[in-house]
Amino acid sequence: MVPTNFYLILSALLFTIGVAGVLTRRNALIIFMCVELMLNSVNLTLVALSRHWGNFNGHIFVFMIMAVAAAEVAIGLAILIAQYHLSKTTNIDEINLMKW
């Protein structure tokens, strides 16, 4: 069997890549995808720990996170489209109306 800490390290790796993406990319869509990446790495942790301790709580958590992620995607993409209609860009550096 694969020990649990392998899964945890993989999940940490994915999370870090997601963080790096959020910090370095400028395209709002890609930042969005990186956020999804981070959510998924957390899901992996929960499932792995659920397997480790042998109970279902982790599965329930993951289920809830997925539902919330679906809602988040719907809202986030709607915001993105509305913003695009307003400013014709998805570059977050140019979305700076509130900075003035």
Binding site: P3, T4, L8, I9, F15, R51, H52, G54, F56
Partner: peptide, 24 residues
């Protein structure tokens, strides 16, 4: 830094899985 910290922690904790697979 965070990644290495996490990896360092995880390497020592959570070794072999429990044989609790039946419960799942």
């Amino acid at each position: 830094f965070m990644l290495s910290a996490m990896a360092f922690n995880f390497l020592n904790a959570f070794g072999e899985m429990d044989a609790n697979a039946a419960a799942l």
